[in-house]
């Protein structure tokens, strides 16, 4: 019988191919070292050592339960209350995974959009403006301007500009998700983490969302978890393949999808398992 330890040792011996982006001349904005995540006694992520390139889209793919969402949620410490995260998360040269870090300030730099659109039960305008108001932005003109630019960047402005005072709960799934993106970029983050943002959306909304993300790449670094292989191939520059709590392969997206070095990766991207 296999114990979890055996599985671990076995996976530790698995072949891996993780490219160091710093070695190929990319500017690194975020990197992790020796990252381990425990839910109670259960270790969900054994090792996630990755470097993320500035102003690029990185896709995290892998089968369910492979640890990619766990990894993503650890990056802006959304796992703080539910899991124990050890190791370093270096953001612009600072380890943000230490108690002394102001986690609220950090999350303003590393924003997040979730799987299910979660607009607040407020008007469209307030969904975007209220977090800014809490941070002391009270000038109405400035707020109006930020709301407008954020909605434009999220490609939602044209559809809602006359309904800013209407409830955000009345938006369709795709619109709501883009409002969540607008809300996230309104606080001017550096990095945007997206956890399967299109999984609850129809194909048309999904493709609009992908266009939006490609536009946003000019200004933000994007890390996206996705189950949709085509999506990863369409929009990302780099792709990391997770399996059983480890990063098994990390390379340019074209490499991962056309010439994967690791057998399991090749099985996964060609649809043979997962």
């Amino acid at each position: 019988m296999l114990t979890s330890n055996d599985v671990r040792n076995e996976s530790a011996m698995q072949e891996r191919h993780v490219t160091q982006l710093s070695a190929v001349g990319e500017e690194i904005i975020l990197s992790t070292r020796n990252l381990h995540v425990f839910y109670g006694q259960h270790e969900a992520l054994f090792e996630g050592d990755l470097e993320f390139a500035n102003h690029k889209i990185t896709a995290l793919i892998g089968p369910s339960g492979s640890g990619k969402s766990t990894f993503l949620r650890s990056l802006n410490r959304m796992n703080d209350r539910i899991a124990t995260v050890t190791g370093e998360i270096m953001y612009r040269g600072v380890d943000v995974n230490q108690p002394a870090i102001d986690v609220y300030e950090m999350r303003r730099r590393v924003g997040m959009v979730f799987q299910r659109p979660n607009p607040f039960a407020k008007s469209i305008y307030d969904n975007i403006a209220f977090a800014l108001q809490l941070r002391g932005v009270t000038d109405r003109h400035q707020l109006d301007e930020i709301v407008e630019t954020s909605l434009k960047q999220a490609a939602l402005w044209e559809q809602v500009k006359d309904d800013l005072n209407k409830s955000a709960l009345a938006l369709s799934g795709g619109q709501a998700q883009r409002l969540c993106i607008a809300r996230a970029i309104a606080v001017k983050p550096d990095i945007l983490l997206l956890d399967e943002p299109a999984s609850a959306l129809d194909p048309v909304s999904t493709s609009q969302l992908e266009d939006t993300l490609l536009d946003l790449k000019q200004k933000y670094t994007i890390i996206i978890v996705t189950h949709n292989m085509q999506q990863a191939a369409r929009i990302s520059d780099y792709t990391a393949f997770f399996n059983a709590g480890r990063v098994l392969e990390y390379d340019t997206t074209s490499q991962i999808f056309t010439n994967p070095q690791v057998k399991i990766t090749s099985d996964y991207v060609s649809g043979n398992f997962g």
Binding site: M78, R107, R108, V113, P119, K122, A131
Partner: peptide
């Protein structure tokens, strides 16, 4: 009030107290 609302607040850099008073309680 769905857990996703709390996550939404926290992910914007709001403290837990701000999330409770500005997002959860109004809803």
């Amino acid at each position: 009030i769905s857990e996703t609302q709390r996550e939404g607040g926290l992910a914007l850099g709001l403290s837990r107290w701000e999330t409770v008073t500005k997002v959860i309680l109004p809803a």
